[in-house]
Amino acid sequence: MVRRPKNKINLPNSDPDWPLETELVGLEFELATKVDVSLYPQYTIGLHAWFLDQVRSTNPELSAYLHDSESEKPFTISALDGELVSSGKQLKIFAHQTYRWSVTALSGRVVQWLAQWVKNLPSEVSLRNAPLQILACNIVHAPTTYTQLLNAEDGGNLSLRFISPTSFRRKGHHLPLPVPMNVFHSYLRRWNDFSGIPIEQDTFLAWVDESVLITRHQIVSLKILAGKKGAVTGFTGAVEFSLTKQASHNPEFYQLFYALGKLAPYCGTGHKTTFGLGQTRLGWSSQVVADVPEVESFLASRIEELTEIFTAQRKRTGGDRASEVASKWATILARREMGESLQVVAEDLQMPYETVKTYAKLARRALKVE
């Protein structure tokens, strides 16, 4: 750990300027607050917004790409790792406790920005009513390239730990299971977008379907808040994958299988990885991570309940984009029920206040009809 001299944090065991060819890196920040403070359950929205604001203030061109690009997002962020407990309708974090927060970069452009940013970090991560002082910054996933991942030693079983709730989208619904095709498809999408070594998706996924087995697993499912709107059912725990004897008959895909496994800690698994979901690590652990604060689980369940009601109503009336609108209504109403102001909800969702106010009225009216 490196303590901060003045307004700078140096990376331990490494020159702050990692090799220019670096395409992937993972950083972990150690954070603390001087007094006990409360956080709203969807605080990862604030972490996401703060990080993007850091990019915007120093590199507007990169900021526009991160906001507007239709490709996969070339970064991930985690939720806070540390003691968070439910306190009424909010979460509480405690003074003089250390909380860890990680950021990874998946492309050379973001890595280069990080290299400059860490030389002059701000003094704190600013969340609503909860300034978190930056104590230290460590490299947790070593600087590397996609070619180096591809050429690294491979063989044997591949074990992955899913340390934050992980879920996939399938036919308009959430799939909270580590099905090999879904797991490796999520890695391949990032690989094809950022590696410069594209792989034919359908052919590789057909090989995964035939060749990748689940040797053992220890997982649990749970409901969790998901980004700016909605909730998902995800899983945490550990999964061990192996290959059939015939898998090595395709050496290209055999090699890629292990490269994608090594990519997993950098890119995360499934969707909403820029809001803390899908955090992934290499190696097996029998300890299943499933500690979601009660208030967060309650809000996620309420959003899911309301989404189902509003979706059913809109489908009956032939409304377009039923699921999308239902999710917005559900998120707004559930957060209002938790005591949050509509102005704050509007800011988080990046929607006009009047629109959010109208949606809240429509949602309450629809709920009475039900």
Rank of each mutant, 00 (worst) to 15 (best):
R216E: 14
F194S: 06
T144G: 14
L225W: 01
T166H: 02
L114K: 05
Q116H: 12
D291T: 06
A259M: 08
R56Y: 08
T274I: 02
D193N: 12
G230Y: 07
K73N: 07
V183W: 00
V110D: 01
T236E: 11
F253W: 08
N151Q: 14
W191I: 07
G230K: 03
L84D: 03
S71E: 06
T233V: 15
L80Y: 09
L135E: 03
Q287R: 15
H67W: 05
L52P: 13
R128W: 13
R128C: 06
E252V: 10
R302Q: 10
S242Y: 08
A290V: 09
K228Q: 08
L121P: 06
P265S: 05
A226E: 01
N129S: 10
K245R: 15
Q54P: 06
L158F: 04
W50F: 07
G237S: 09
T58W: 02
D202P: 01
P19M: 00
T166Y: 04
D53E: 11
T147A: 13
G268A: 09
R169Y: 06
K89I: 03
R321L: 05
K262Q: 02
K8N: 15
H48N: 12
V2C: 06
N151F: 08
K245N: 15
T98P: 13
I309C: 09
I332N: 01
M181Q: 11
P165C: 13
K6I: 10
W113R: 00
F257H: 00
P12I: 04
I309S: 09
A152H: 12
I77N: 03
W207M: 04
H174L: 15
V183H: 01
I224V: 14
S78G: 02
V344T: 13
S159K: 09
G268K: 03
Q246A: 12
L299Q: 05
K357E: 12
T355Q: 14
I219W: 11
E61G: 07
N138R: 10
V220F: 14
